[in-house]
Design a protein around this nucleic acid. Sequence first.
DNA 1: CTTGTGACTGTTAGCGCTAACTATACCCTG
DNA 2: CAGGGTATAGTTAGCGCTAACAGTCACAAG
Lengths: 344, 344
Amino acid sequence: MTKAPVVDPRRTLTLRDVSEASGVSEMTVSRVLRNRGDVSDSTREKVLHAARSLGYVPNKIAGALASQRVNLVAVIIPSMSNMVFPEVMMGISDTLEDTGLQPVVGITNYSPEREESVLYEMLSWRPSGVIIAGLEHSPAAHAMLESAGIPIVEIMDIDGTPVDSAVGISHRRAGRQMAEAIIAAGYRRIGFLGTKMPDDHRARKRLDGFREGLARAGLTLADEEYYRGGSALLKGREMTEAILKRTPDLDFLYYSNDMIGAGGLLYCLAQGIDVPGTLGLAGFNGVELLDGLPRKLATMDACRREIGIHAAEIIAGKRPTGVIGGEVIELFPKLQPGDTIRKV
Amino acid sequence: MTKAPVVDPRRTLTLRDVSEASGVSEMTVSRVLRNRGDVSDSTREKVLHAARSLGYVPNKIAGALASQRVNLVAVIIPSMSNMVFPEVMMGISDTLEDTGLQPVVGITNYSPEREESVLYEMLSWRPSGVIIAGLEHSPAAHAMLESAGIPIVEIMDIDGTPVDSAVGISHRRAGRQMAEAIIAAGYRRIGFLGTKMPDDHRARKRLDGFREGLARAGLTLADEEYYRGGSALLKGREMTEAILKRTPDLDFLYYSNDMIGAGGLLYCLAQGIDVPGTLGLAGFNGVELLDGLPRKLATMDACRREIGIHAAEIIAGKRPTGVIGGEVIELFPKLQPGDTIRKV
DNA sequence: CTTGTGACTGTTAGCGCTAACTATACCCTG
DNA sequence: CAGGGTATAGTTAGCGCTAACAGTCACAAG
């Protein structure tokens, strides 16, 4: 009967293994591997050689517990399936790159309950900071953010009161600006097409602002159409067809995002509708995709990359002045008229 | 002179705080919060109440160190910016949902060096498993995967030898199949448009297979065009224009992905080219976006969601039989002829 | 020769939690 | 009522690492 080896040869390695292999104390190994404190070149060599040849991978769990330091930043966003959050992520990653900090992403699918549980889960890993989309959270989530004791940056939106810092644009104002531009271009019978998502607060705020802009000119929305799920491009076609069938005299369509806007644009072109003569179109976001369309859709850049960069800078403590917490950075989206709004 | 409080009131809470607040031992609190072991209802109530009112968030770092268990699954993928990996992610998340396991994503940007460092970083958190795109890794990365002592699933591709398990399709075969379908439809002057990415091994294998398929019919590629970076849709337009200017007698264009294919399709339609009569088109991936296009691009579904599901099942130990490690699951993409290949 | 100083390395004591065991009650069975 | 379950709670000993401190040694200055 073969006896099992006393020590499992495939047991995961620890500092002690490296320490024994290189003939120095665990502490010295730790110092070498973290590049901290003074270690002689010869010792360093020995240790690095031993670590490499054993294939040692440090255990950050133990390290984090002992040092009370975690190089993780929790990033909590609603979705990855349109291009807006991936771009925010790029800004975050690029900025965090040389800080030793690492983003960890959680997705909420626009559900407050999921946001709460994702946040709880992430906080239980004691990250160095939290970047979270939006200013609206469940009471419990809000309480967790308040008492986390780490930097919190709420991103995308600044129409509200942040827990700590915030970086974003005013969606309300963005909606209003678009309304003003549309009215200035002479359009009067305006329809809105958007998502049926009660928890997409930013889309709601844009619509609120848009309505407000119309109201100031004595106008109201002539028709509305909402969708949920499915291919946004396809939905854009379908909704556009539907709203134009129902209300043929519309002279402008405002889409809550560029993807359905692009679908609408393709539909209109295929139908031979005169854009922007008889019908103007506009979306929101400024996604790169639009560059490839036959005609450029009017839109508004949401400053996604910049938002990511600034948020990461706050977490990394890179912001210039000595501001501690409570910083609010407002960015200003630019209207890109493209080819789907009449020139005034 | 005010004396600092002995205990920082905003010091993060520990089990001990909850234990003191509820008058039971730390162990009992731990049991309640993890729902493990027998605890009387009255004690459970007391503990839960205390934990909630204090706003206690468990420290998973300490928990993981003590229990040698981490509920994290490392997912390492090259990119999030086209829709292919987000869809794989959905499959993974949905499957992991009810297992207590949580995916953590790392992005490599198709760089072997970044893959290596992301992998190292993730392994240092001692995840329960690794899902990683592709079969090609640096020697160091390969060694880490080999000796990690946890389930490894290499996804997307099965043309090669996996470290442990693999789930994916044969890109080589996919390319060959497409070539066969194109030839069967009578096209002969075939051009290829793709990315200039030496480390996108799957795109390379598809092209290899495609060339092989052509060769069997005595054909070779009539022209090729490559791009790097930028809006894929726009690049698709530009490249299509370029290749058709250079080689006007092409009768088919095979794109390495649907996004540039869509750009090409829009260009051809705008130019009034007879598709699929004089010119046939095909892409690869089966992205949902295409549903919204005026005409459906021929493509091949890469089984993205299924790949995510199966990979997660392997990690979660959900696979039906008692297979341990070394499992290879091959999926078979279906050709979707759409409207851009002549019917035979 | 003593003392100090800087460069290097080792020792000790946890970080906050959980596995594994031990200690009580309390109840049943025969 | 002994013997032995069973449900519940507590105790002990780490998990693998690092902060903080404590040497040790060589060499220069006094």
